[in-house]
Each structure stands twice: as structure tokens, then as C-alpha cells.
Amino acid sequence: MSTLVDGPVRGGRGQRVLFIATTVILCLWVLVPIYLLFVNAVSSSSDVTTFPKPRVPAIDLESLRFFMNYQGVARASWNSLVVACTTMVIAIGIGAPAGYALSRFDFRGKSAFRLLVLLTRAFPLPLLALPLAILYIRVGLDDTVLGIACVHALLAMPFAVLINFSLFSGIPVELEEAAWTLGCNRWQAFRKVVLPLVLPGLTASAIFAFVISWNEVFAAAVLTIEHRTLPAFLLQSLNSAPLHLKFAGGAMLVLPALFFIFAVRKYLFAMWGIANR
């Protein structure tokens, strides 16, 4: 690793060693716990509960297999997937037009709208699951995929709006204007010029919405009974489930996150760069 990372050009040798060492330690600080979880997940149930642990973990997919066949796991995972996808669609469907409006127009109430969006970010949103639980019973959304997806979309929306705002702001207005002068109307110019250019970013913001939904525990636990999402299911079975099952479930939650963060890593920074203004 020390050959891959390098610190400031200037500064003495000692300083550089310190720099690289700190970097490596901080990387290990992040990676080792994840690694340990995965080792636990692929160890046999007896290994997980032995003390002291064997030096070299024996790989045994028994717990994972057991987890997959455990009552309700498959269903909860499927629910999580559906909820996350629905969240993605709602968040982007609503957030992208708003982001576009913020980046392209000066309109009355613009700053008020931006403030409202930022305000939701500064609010303990899962708490809203409480009144929504009652509200949902009234309108028949209780314990449904759509019901949770809406709450998750609320969580994801400020991010969706901000990422999209930043994405569209990165496309020079002139490109659209050029398209207009070359025979496009607003929609055609958007579809032929802006959309192809923002598509990667748009995908990233969709994935970000997916991750937010995939990880959310509180609202999902409050709003569902039968149609548990994976985190809600795990939370519910924390008391009853054996240890190795918890770890298998944890690994199941973490795995997609690794890929998703990798996929959206570039956009994380662009988003906050502009959000601070």
C-alpha cells in the first residue's frame, strides 16, 4: 500500500513516513471491522461462537445458507429491493425536475424553495414515520411497499435535488441554447443534449437514493409489520436470532453498500460542494 499512496512532495522523509502510516492506519480502521464481519458471515455457526477464535478462519457457507433459508429473509430482501427501487424512482422523478429548475431559472420563491429542501435535511426525518403510520392506516397505505418508499423518498429527496442541481449546473446553458438555435424546442434540447450529458450523474443520484432506502431502519420498522424490509426484519429479530444469523444479515446489508459507494464516489463531493452555498 505504501507504494500506492504518497503524501506531500515537500517535507522530510520522517514526515512522509508519518503521513503514509497515518493514512494506512485510517484505512485499516475502516476496513478491518468490515473484514471481520465478512469473516464471521462465512464462518460456521460454531466458529462464530467459539472462544478463542481459530487463527485462520475456516470458510463455511453454512450460516449464509441458513440465513438465506431463514423464515422471512428472502421475502424481506425482496421487499427491501422493491422499496429501494421505488424510492429511487420517486426521488429522481421529483428531485431531477426540481434540480433542473434550480439550476436554470431565477424565479420568485426560489430561495424559499431551496430553504425548504435544506430544512428537511436538517430535520430528524424518521420521526415523521409516527404520524404517517396513523395516516397510512386511514388511506390504506399501511404496511405497503409504496408507503415506506414515500418516507424513504422524503429522506432521499434533499440529496436528489442537490445532486441534480449540481449536475445540471455543470452543463453550460449555452449547450441548450445552441440546440434551440439549431431547431430544438426545450424538450428536444433537453433530451438530445442535456440528458446524455447528465445520465451518469443521474444514475449516481439514483443509486444514492437506493442506498438511503436500503439502509433505513427506523421508519421501515415503524411502518411495516408483514412487509418488513431487510433492516427492519433484522432489527426485529435481533433478540431472537442466533449470532451467526445476525452477522450473515449484517454482511448482506453491507455488501451492496460497498459497490454503491464505489459507483457514486465521484458525485458525493460535487453534491456537497454546491450544497454548501
Partner: peptide, 21 residues
């Protein structure tokens, strides 16, 4: 990338990770 990985990890999963320790 490594330093931002925990960003994608839910609080529940993080709890389980440290439970393993």
C-alpha cells in the same frame, strides 16, 4: 473511496460489525 465506505453502511449494519468485535 476507502474512507467513505462507511457512508453507505447503515447504522444497523455498523452496529452488527462492531458486535462482531
Amino acid at each position: 473511496y476507502i474512507w467513505t465506505i462507511p457512508l453507505g453502511i447503515s447504522d444497523l449494519a455498523a452496529g452488527l460489525i462492531w458486535l462482531a468485535i
